[in-house]
Nucleic acid binder design. Structure first.
Lengths: 338, 338
DNA sequence: CTGAAAGCGCTAACAG
DNA sequence: CTGTTAGCGCTTTCAG
């Protein structure tokens, strides 16, 4: 019987709907013989519980929203995978929403997700000035949400961060230890925390180590291959080109690699290239990419844990978790050749 | 007022809940003045409709399930992106479920998705003998679902396919046109339609063109880099190694590329490597991968369209759509060097 | 065009 | 341990 309800089950089992509900939810003791009859009736009827009706009463859907720029981007995909895994482990499902960082799209998703009464939202929005999140936060500061890899001005919400200052410092330290002094820096979308912090880290390192700052070596744009390619070309055409390029993500580094190859510049012999993220892409380029690794899987998992904690009321005050990046040395970097 | 219901809106607007419902759903004519009062009340109360309650009545949730092996795999990620885009365009959300091709996990997802009353499911399960789908089909042949890139024995359900025979033939034709006669073939998981059909295509091509079949040149395993690497090493260590390797997906091709590099075999000078899929990975390897391109975006979009058609009752008989692959020539293939 | 009333399928007191 | 009852918030006849 398709479309059976607890009424059907109750009748068949000869008990009341409350008893059926109780065995369904393990909510309180039910006489063993009754439980069995119910289970059997469920089996025979092919009864499937209607979680919509349950959610309407219980006020939770066990569904999470994941708002992300683009699931086809390996960086986000790896995070998404971890989010989904951790969610599933805790019996939550996740609705994935691709925004391409379009705030209008994002706002529409937020609205519909709330209307579908999802229990919490995980944002990976990189924009530091995301007014959708601000608005949501102002309207309902207690709504379970967590932000990955960014911060929103004026919002004290749950956040999972990776220490960009440390990541940048380690990269710069490593590059200088190889003898590099002219290090180009290509960052992504300027309005993102990642760009800002990594740029700051780069500049601070220069200052702290008495190295000259040359603005011609610093270029921004987008976290994309094309941008890396373009900006790397520009850097390499300088009359005094850098001997190393530090890219603010893997895609930029890959673009730089392409540019170097096209210009006949050998990597790492003549130019070192260092990426950021350590997505799966980093191991399939040639040479394989040295990069600052972000723990994407952990970021996703922690974020999922954090929303769920919130949803389940196991924590009420906002928490910021800062994870550590680590340098992964591969083949795209090498000693300065004099 | 957070948590306002249509009752609150109705009261504030001085109309009945039916009228509120009508403006919410545009379901029938409402006097303009009333509509405006309702809209205003909604605005003032910050009313958010509860789609759970609506779904309980309307029997649809405008939510789709996407069951996929691994969203972190670029091939699936690209499909997923397209599915989500097309779904969003039609006002559907999608719950993503990663199964790692584990049938137990998949069964659990199917159950929970059905209990959450999602409107349809898109499967990308590669296994040709997926009893979860069979079971679902037998129990509810009319449940909207579509299968991407595979077929299930005995189930006549909506399917989006890409012509593997054509893809394989084009690849082989191209390789032989370059002068290759000893062409190795590395396929993936043997129990998948992709493996079977591509292998058949390869073998048929050999027969049809009077070329010798050498079983030593044919190896299977998994659709993974590691498998490609391993099997390519084996092929290349043969006393009479192939001059070209045809890989059943990009990952395998990438593994083969690695093996060749490690063995000091130049690609494409000494060995041509041809991949399958044309994921974003294909352009970042070196040399860039020649491959049979599958239209991932279209596959996802068509699949989404098809379930939605079904859900909305615009079509009732099963449909199989077969898309065409195309050969994308890049740098990993070249003329046989004598 | 509008309102009253009857559910959708389930959970949660409450009384027993 | 079990049943009764009152909703959850909405859609949908059915009268009017």
């Amino acid at each position: 019987m398709a479309g059976a309800t607890i009424y059907d089950v109750a009748k068949k089992a000869g008990v009341s709907i409350s008893t059926v509900s109780r065995v369904l939810n393990n909510s309180s003791r039910v006489k063993e013989s009754n439980r069995e009859r119910v289970l059997q009736a469920i089996e025979e009827l092919g009864y499937e519980r209607n979680l919509l009706a349950a959610a309407l009463m219980k006020k939770n859907t066990h569904t999470l929203g994941l708002i992300i720029a683009d699931i086809a981007n390996p960086f986000y995909a790896e995070i998404a995978r971890a989010v989904e895994d951790k969610a599933a482990e805790n019996h939550y499902n996740v609705i994935v929403c691709n925004t391409d960082n379009d705030l209008k799209k994002e706002a529409a998703y937020i609205t519909i997700l709330r209307q579908k009464r999802i229990d919490g939202i995980i944002f990976t929005t990189p924009e530091i000035n995301n007014h959708n999140i601000k608005k949501l936060y102002q309207e309902q500061p207690d709504f379970p949400m967590v932000l990955i890899g960014s911060r929103i001005e004026g919002c004290t919400i749950d956040t999972v961060l990776v220490d960009n200052s440390l990541g940048t410092t380690e990269a710069m330290q490593y590059l200088t230890s190889l003898g590099h002094r002219r290090i180009g820096f290509i960052y992504g979308l300027p309005s993102t925390l990642s760009s800002k912090e990594r740029l700051t880290g780069y500049l601070n390192y220069l200052v702290d180590n008495g190295m000259a700052r040359d603005n011609k070596l610093i270029r921004g744009g987008a976290f994309k291959i094309e941008n890396g390619y373009q900006k790397a070309r520009e850097l390499l055409q300088l009359e005094d080109p850098p001997t190393a390029i530090f890219a603010a993500n893997d895609l930029i580094a890959i673009g730089a690699l392409e540019a170097a190859r096209e210009m006949g510049i050998e990597v790492p012999g003549e130019l070192s290239i260092l990426g950021y993220d350590n997505t799966s892409l980093a191991t399939i380029t040639f040479p394989r990419l040295t990069c600052v690794a972000q723990p994407m899987a952990e970021m996703g998992a922690r974020a999922a844990e954090m929303v769920i904690e919130r949803i389940q009321g196991r924590r009420s005050s906002p928490k910021v978790v800062t994870l550590l990046p680590r340098l992964v040395i591969r083949d795209s970097t090498g000693p300065l050749r004099r």
